[in-house]
Design a protein around this nucleic acid. Structure first.
Length: 520
RNA sequence: CGGGGUGUAGCGCAGUUGGCUAGCGCGCCACGUUCGGGACGUGGAGGCCGGAAGUUCGAGUCUUCUCACCCCGACCA
């Protein structure tokens, strides 16, 4: 308690020192060449992915190259999620990219759901054509059984689990894998929907229904915590309707997020698979009572799509805004100098600050390149969403100060150089919080409780955002609503309060509101 | 997979009723002056005009086919 008070007073003292030197400037310039959100939101997104150097289209239709800066964000996401999976008792493993076609047909709903978008390997050899047509498929090298490139791994995994499980003592199995999957999509967009994408898929096996259900919800909560605390993205947890659930699941749980254009984006899913896959692959175990029983299953995943969510939730017309906890670079230091001598003095000072900040666990980049002017660098790092920028010029050398600029608000202030080591970590925490608060505020402003069909249509077709509305619980009504407005039921929220009402479409009685939105 | 659009230098574009050595801006390279919000000057490099076939004395330009990408629908994380 005593330490706490001392610490508090210490920070208060620093803050008052900073305030003396503080000035605010709201910057009005626009980043060159970046389409504004109001002009064309979807173009803004495309521009941003390219200009921030996150990814680009590849020579392969529908597939992207994730560039180093984009991949660095994915590595931050992976790193944190992997820690959280381990903390909840999971281990990593790896299963094959190829799945024998026959495995797929074993679970009826599952095939039904994925058959339309599978890439299939039919041959295993190429040869040089005798007629000079170049390299051709060797028809003599046809596979006995075609291989599917995994769109998801339930089938190969449950085929394997069958051999691992004999008794309740072999359970639970709590495995995750980091992998790539392929789903042959017609229309693709960088990060949001590509033919090949990276993801993580957890596959667990349990002795009881209760335990599997608990696992499903536990991992949903891991995703929700990750989204809110790391991505600074508020989520709504819920369960999918029959028509929106995973092919082969009993229930699909989801975290739903809202993007700046008013469209919803599913951030992660956790499936309660019941005994469906155990039945399909004949995975039985001897329970404590000495009876054979089918194993209970879950699976759960998030994909590189999260990077798309990160971009669309927070960024502005100047470029990316990354939450500090997922930013590859926390702080960039830019020198401002008139000559070589000044540059070397400033560099020396910058290196000291860099070391100090790095000792606090921050990732710091000093950009001492002489090939670009400071203004160019400012714009560049704003485009890339680096949360904090320090600028050091001759005036700062004289006054022993640095200029601190925060990316989320574009505010600039002068602070004493000696306080940087304590001030910056605080500022980063503050930015993380502010971004989350801003996204939450946006979501609140764009969440509507609607009671009539007209109100509903206005949200779906004009205003955008989430609509809480009564629904009669039938797939028919759900399909009609989608057909007429493009809005879908994102989920039935877990924290729903029961409420008597009438379905906005059919007028039939309803016991609760469900969450509707037009979605990505 | 249906409807619409675009392919000319790394990127964004111009290129006339078919005609001479295919241009412009940005970027790139060299040198110099600059550097507290995307600097400027001078010089330079860079093109099988998406690909194939055809019409023609002659094709970036006309015809056919093909491929890729973008936008709108159906499908999806």
């Amino acid at each position: 308690m005593c330490e706490f008070i001392i610490l508090f007073l210490y920070f208060a003292a620093i803050n008052s020192r900073i305030n003396k030197h503080k000035y605010h400037t709201k910057l009005q310039f626009m980043a060159k060449e970046l389409t504004s959100r109001s002009e064309n939101y979807s173009q803004w997104y495309n521009d941003l992915v390219i200009k921030a150097d996150l990814a680009e289209a590849s020579a392969v239709r529908g597939c992207m190259v994730i560039k180093p800066y984009g991949y660095a964000i994915w590595e931050k996401i992976q790193g944190q999620l992997d820690r959280m999976f381990k903390e909840t008792g999971h281990v990593n493993a790896y299963f094959p990219l190829f799945i024998p076609k026959s495995f797929f047909s074993k679970e009826a709903e599952h095939v039904e759901g994925f058959a339309k978008e599978c890439a299939v390997v039919t041959h295993y050899r190429l040869r040089n054509d005798d007629q000079g047509k170049g390299l051709v498929v060797d028809e003599n090298a046809k596979l006995e059984e075609e291989l599917i490139i995994r769109p998801t791994s339930e089938t190969i995994i449950w085929n394997t689990y069958k051999n691992w499980i004999q008794s309740y003592r072999d359970l639970p199995i709590l495995i995750n894998q980091w992998a790539n999957v392929v789903r042959w999509e017609m229309r693709t967009r960088l990060f949001l929907r590509t033919t090949e994408f990276l993801w993580q898929e957890g596959h667990t096996a349990h002795a009881t229904r209760e335990e599997a259900l608990e696992e499903t919800l536990k991992m949903l909560q891991v995703y929700a915590t990750f989204a809110e605390e790391y991505m600074a993205l508020p989520v709504i947890k819920g369960v999918k309707t029959e028509s929106e659930k995973f092919a082969g699941a009993i229930d699909t749980y989801t975290i739903e997020t809202l993007m700046q254009d008013g469209k919803a984006l599913q951030g992660g899913t956790s499936h309660f698979l019941g005994q469906n896959f155990a039945r399909a692959f004949d995975v039985k175990f001897l329970n404590r009572e000495g009876q054979l029983d089918l194993v209970w299953a879950t699976s759960w995943g998030v994909t590189t799509r999260l990077i798309g969510a990160l971009i669309m939730a927070h960024s502005d017309d100047n470029g990316l805004i990354l939450p500090p906890k997922l930013a590859p670079i926390h702080v960039v230091i830019v020198p401002i100098h008139k000559n070589e001598e000044q540059l070397s003095q400033i560099s020396a000072k910058a290196e000291v600050l860099k070391k100090e900040l790095e000792s606090k666990g921050l990732s710091v980049k000093y950009d001492g390149r002489d090939t670009h002017k400071p203004g160019w660098k400012f714009a560049e790092y704003e485009l890339k969403g680096v949360p904090v920028r320090l600028a050091i010029g001759p005036r700062d050398l004289e006054n022993n100060t640095v200029e601190v600029a925060r990316r989320d608000t574009l505010e600039k202030m002068i602070v004493p150089a000696d306080t940087v080591g304590t001030y910056i970590p605080e500022l980063l925490a503050n930015i993380q919080e502010n971004i989350f608060r801003r996204a939450s505020g946006f979501r609140e402003k764009n969440t509507h409780r609607v009671n009539t069909w007209d109100e509903f249509r206005e949200v779906a077709e004009v205003k955008g955002g989430f609509a809480y509305a009564h629904w009669d619980g039938t797939s028919e009504t759900e399909a009609k609503i989608k057909e007429e407005t493009k809005a879908t039921i994102r989920c039935i929220p877990l924290d729903n309060e029961p409420e008597e009402g009438k379905c906005i479409y059919s007028g039939k009685p309803s016991k609760q509101r469900v969450l509707f939105a037009v979605a990505y």
